[in-house]
Design a protein around this nucleic acid. Structure first.
Lengths: 209, 209
DNA sequence: CACCACACTGTCCAAAGGTACAATGTGCCT
DNA sequence: AGGCACATTGTACCTTTGGACAGTGTGGTG
């Protein structure tokens, strides 16, 4: 397994070699392609010298070579972690991670897992509740909607106008309005904006009246 | 490392023992606590005989024992995966996963990673982007907004009406409209519904015209 | 100073959204 | 058969939204 560290600074070179005795260190993402044809190990991307704005692109480029990429950030942050993992990185850790930690991460990533610091993982899971369809439980207000009402609600959730909904469902605009009134009542929302947000699990704080 | 499989059916018992020769199989979550005091291995939760409605609770209970939990589902699905991982599970796989796969997952989970099928992971990361503040990059359309416009946009993003925004910002409803017109233009959205969704990183598919 | 971006406001108007009152038809359950 | 939930549509009416045209004031910059 041939680990490749991409780093401009390279101050931590010794630490990396200590973690993976056979590891190579290079300065540019472009040279990932030039690696030997041996077993394709992890690409470790040191972003401490990369400006914020270019990090995503850098990760994307690295990922494009097809090897698993682990990002090492100088100041790991939640937002950045999620964005970079979304670019295709398989791991996200502190650039100063200890050798033992690096080996752990390597183990995880090599076996198809994802790795990020436990606090981030925790936060990540909590946040993602919002984007996941809630369980089909009885207390779910969506279950109060009839099938037709649900269709209308889903359209609104994607920003459709009454006219568009009518066209999509092959009914009159008047009927759309009828369904909408029922939906507002059942879900306790005021208008289509709040409905759209509610359908996407986004809370709305409205001043009473 | 003492692996514990919690399963009602237990048809796959042999497969599991094959994967982890020292593994134990039990029928109820409650018995997780009774395990020996040896090294605390992974709890594998077979949900194939558990009704949908009870799965989350089952996972929650299992997680409560403090040991890493991997969920094995009969028909793995995106929504369920996210919900159960949210309950604290560290892995999510098919109940019929091969022994080699199980060992891979174990390796990942034991080293602090978390595991789910690659397609799901991909989807998960994409969805999570919505709840994460987007990068402050130049290509971010939000940066085109003036400070006042941004305030209005944020209010809309939470479902406020023009009247409410006016009250909140201490300006006329007319001024709110002026800002809104500018916002629509700059962000390329049609109305406040699409703005609200855009502000929450939710894509809108609109029929042309 | 002239110019410009920005915040703010006014009036008018058209389109979209939403409600009230009301009716018709269908399918299911008692 | 009668009752009920649901889908559908009509007319009328009010509110909200959003755009057009237009103007004022402030602060910063060449």
């Amino acid at each position: 397994m041939e680990h490749l560290f991409v780093s401009l600074g390279g101050k931590l070179r010794e630490r990396w070699i200590q973690a993976f005795p056979g590891a190579a260190v290079t300065a540019s993402v472009a040279s990932i392609g030039k690696s030997t044809s041996g077993p394709r190990g992890i690409v470790w991307l040191d972003l401490s010298a990369t400006p914020d704005a270019q990090r995503a692109a850098q990760v994307r480029d690295a990922v494009a070579f097809g090897r698993p990429v682990v990002v090492m950030a100088p100041t790991p942050g939640e937002a950045e972690a999620f964005r970079l993992l979304n670019e295709g990185a398989r791991g996200y850790c502190h650039v100063g991670a200890a050798p033992e930690q690096l080996r752990e991460i390597a183990l995880v990533v090599e076996h198809g897992g994802f790795w990020m610091p436990p606090e981030l993982m925790q936060r990540y899971l909590a946040l993602s509740l919002r984007v996941v369809p809630p369980p089909m439980s009885p207390e779910n207000e969506l279950n109060e909607l009839t099938s037709r009402e649900l269709m209308v609600a889903e359209q609104v959730a994607h920003g459709a106008s009454n006219r568009e909904i009518a066209a999509a469902l092959n009914i009159t605009e008047r009927t759309v309005k009828a369904h909408l009134s029922a939906i507002f009542e059942k879900l306790g929302v005021r208008d289509r904006v709040q409905l759209a947000l509610a359908m996407n699990n986004i809370p709305t704080y409205t001043t009473v009246n």
